[in-house]
Amino acid sequence: MNTIKHVFFDLDNTLWDFRKNARFALAELYIKYDVENRYGFTFEEFHPHYHESNEGLWALIRDKKITKEELRARRFKEAFDNLGIDNDALARIFEDEYMETITNYNEVVDGAMELLNYLKPKYKLHIITNGFIEVSKRKIETSDLNGYFDTVTYADEIQILKPDPRIYSYAMEKSGANKKESIYIGDDWIADAVGAKAFGMSAIFFDRLDDNFEMDDVPTIKHLDEVRKFL
């Protein structure tokens, strides 16, 4: 991979630890609104329902089956309904406050800063994210990730989500990069690895959840420090 000049990253769960920060934010809201005392369910009982709802809805967004507005309307309602809490008003409060609360927490994925410090002197660094634009901006600007990236491409800018090749094309134009001199690193097999390869970029799959997907010419890593073997 000695022709690589540009390294593109996914944001959530590749660099910015969405799962960890989301858990912190949700625990804060759960206490704030006294959910356990009001309904008898602990946060540990609630959290898997939120995780299942959120992950499933983001997959539907990626597959162009729902909009982000539908995700926001459904994820907490579904989580509370599945837990056994019938309170749509509470679900709306959680959604309204969650987007702000989550950026109060800025844990990055283990090894992220060490990798960025290693790559920064050698390559142009970029991000392509499907996340909500205003929230994603705050995630970067208020965390240790700030200042490392030459460009950040937000799906909301052009209303096109990974793995659609048009978002990769837009990122190339925005960054001045050439796809033959670029590589993409992300934790979502479809949106990141498959999407980048379909566009014609090299890709590295960050398999944080042990999904064990495979594709020719797509290396799999389990920890970010393994990127150094390729770049």
Rank of each mutant, 00 (worst) to 15 (best):
R92Q: 11
M99F: 06
L116N: 00
E78P: 06
I102T: 05
I128G: 00
F132G: 02
G131C: 05
I61P: 00
L119W: 15
E95G: 06
N106H: 11
M99W: 09
A91L: 10
I61Q: 01
T103A: 04
R72L: 14
L116M: 08
F80C: 15
G84D: 11
S136M: 09
A73S: 15
V135E: 12
Y98S: 13
K137P: 03
N87D: 15
D88T: 15
K137W: 06
H126P: 02
K120A: 13
K124C: 08
I102K: 00
N82G: 12
L71M: 07
I102S: 00
Y105K: 03
R62A: 09
V135P: 00
I127Y: 07
D96L: 05
A112T: 06
K137T: 05
N106Y: 09
D110F: 06
N130A: 09
L57C: 03
D86Y: 15
D96P: 00
K124R: 07
D96I: 02
Y123S: 10
Y105H: 13
Y118W: 14
W58I: 04
A91K: 03
K120Y: 10
K120V: 12
D81T: 15
N104F: 04
L115W: 00
L125R: 07
A89G: 14
A73W: 01
F132C: 00
R138M: 07
I102V: 12
L115N: 04
K65R: 12
E78A: 13
I133N: 07
A91M: 02
I66A: 03
F76Q: 05
T67R: 08
N82P: 09
I61N: 01
N117H: 11
T101D: 12
P121K: 10
N106A: 09
I128R: 04
H126F: 06
K65C: 05
L71R: 03
N87T: 04
E78Q: 13
T101P: 01
F94V: 05
W58G: 01
D110E: 11
L90T: 13
G84C: 07
I85T: 06
E97T: 03
M99V: 14
T101H: 04
I93A: 10
L90Q: 15
L57Q: 01
G84V: 12
A79Q: 05
K64R: 14
T101Y: 06
L71T: 09
V108K: 00
A59T: 10
Y123T: 03
L115I: 13
F80N: 11
E95H: 07
K124T: 07
G84L: 11
L57F: 03
A59I: 13
N82M: 05
I102L: 14
R62L: 02
F94M: 07
K77Q: 11
I85Y: 04
E97K: 06
R74P: 03
L90N: 13
L119D: 15
K120G: 08
G131Q: 08
D96Y: 05
A79S: 15
K77E: 08
L116C: 06
K120N: 14
K65F: 00
N82S: 12
E78Y: 08
Y118I: 02
G84Q: 13
G84M: 11
N87F: 04
R75M: 12
A91D: 02
L116G: 00
I102Y: 01
D63C: 02
E114Q: 12
L83V: 10
D81G: 07
D110R: 07
M99S: 14
N117G: 07
A112R: 02
R74G: 02
L71H: 08
F76P: 06
T129S: 09
I61G: 00
